[in-house]
């Protein structure tokens, strides 16, 4: 204690914190701050900077016999590609609710996990899905159709082929 003995000090008087106590408090708070920043810094580690996911662009070959409005699901992909009046569009089959793969048919889409149902254009008909199915970007490259699973477009966007 650096306070001289005999000095009347109230414990409630903030001006009378002895220097040693103030330094002790300061060191405790600096330790707490350091630990806080160390923790926040550590949390950066599990947030990956580079994602090891495969390419999202898919070349699609539509079967000649595909009828208008019938879905075509490329093998191993979660999307349905449609041909309608000479135009092509692609709708993602990943449910907007909790990510299950919806089953595509000419009349719409149905999700096996929690019962969401979608119209043929992807809008929600029934169930817990919060928004319509995503429409995917379709482009042509050297005569082949390319669908980009990573890029969504405005619903209703169709491409002439």
């Amino acid at each position: 204690m650096t306070v001289k003995p005999g000095t009347p000090v109230s414990r409630l008087d903030p001006e009378q914190i002895p220097r040693r106590d103030a330094l002790g408090l300061l060191s405790l708070w600096s330790m707490a701050t350091a630990l806080l920043f160390a923790t926040v810094g550590m949390l950066r580690l599990p947030k990956a900077a580079v994602l090891a996911s495969p390419s999202k662009k898919v070349k699609v070959q539509l079967p000649e016999t595909l009828a208008d409005g019938e879905p075509f699901v490329p093998p191993g992909r979660s999307m349905a590609v449609f041909r309608q009046a000479g135009q092509v569009y692609a709708i993602s089959t990943v449910c907007t609710h909790l990510g299950c793969i919806v089953k595509a048919s000419a009349g719409g889409f149905a999700c096996p996990c929690h019962g969401s149902e979608f119209e043929a254009d992807g809008t929600v008909r029934k169930g817990p899905a919060p928004r319509p199915l995503d429409w995917l970007e379709v482009s042509t490259s050297g005569g082949a159709l390319v669908v980009n699973e990573g890029a969504t477009v405005k619903p209703g966007t169709k491409v002439n082929v």
């Binding site: 990956a48 090891a52 996911s53």
Partner: peptide
Amino acid sequence: LQRMLLLGSDIVGEE
């Protein structure tokens, strides 16, 4: 962010 921290990726896989 929460999904990314759980999966370590944007797909469900090895990570």
